[in-house]
Amino acid sequence: MENLQELFIEAGTLMLAGMVFVFAFLGLLIVFINVVLVRLAKKYPDAIVESRATNKRNNKKQEGNAGVSPAVVAAISSAVTQYRQQHSTKK
C-alpha cells in the first residue's frame, strides 16, 4: 500500500511536470509564430507565392504570345498561301 502511495505521488508529479512542460513548449511556439513568423510574413508578403503565380501567369501569357500564337499564325498563313496558290493555278 505504501508502494502504491509512492507511485501515486510519482504519477502526480509526472502529471504536473508533463502538463506544465507541454503548455510551456507549445506556448513558446505561439510566441515564436506571433513574433517571428508573422514578421517574416510581413517582410516577405507572399513574395514567393505571388511571384510564382505571376510567373505562371506570365508563362501562360508568353506561351500564348510566343509559343502557341506564332505556330497558329504560321499554320494559318501557310494554309492561306497554299489556298491562294491552288486558287491561282486553278484560274
Binding site: F8, A11, L14, G18, M19, F25, L26, L29, I30, L37
Partner: peptide, 29 residues
C-alpha cells in the same frame, strides 16, 4: 500558423495522457 492560439487546445488535450497515467496507477489497487 494562421491561428497559433489553437496550440493551447492541442496542449490541453494532452491532459488525457497524464490523467490516464494516474488512472493506470490507481488500477493497481
Amino acid at each position: 500558423i494562421a491561428n497559433p492560439k489553437t496550440l493551447l487546445l492541442g496542449a490541453a488535450a494532452q491532459f488525457g495522457i497524464f490523467a490516464t497515467l494516474f488512472g493506470a496507477i490507481a488500477l493497481n489497487a
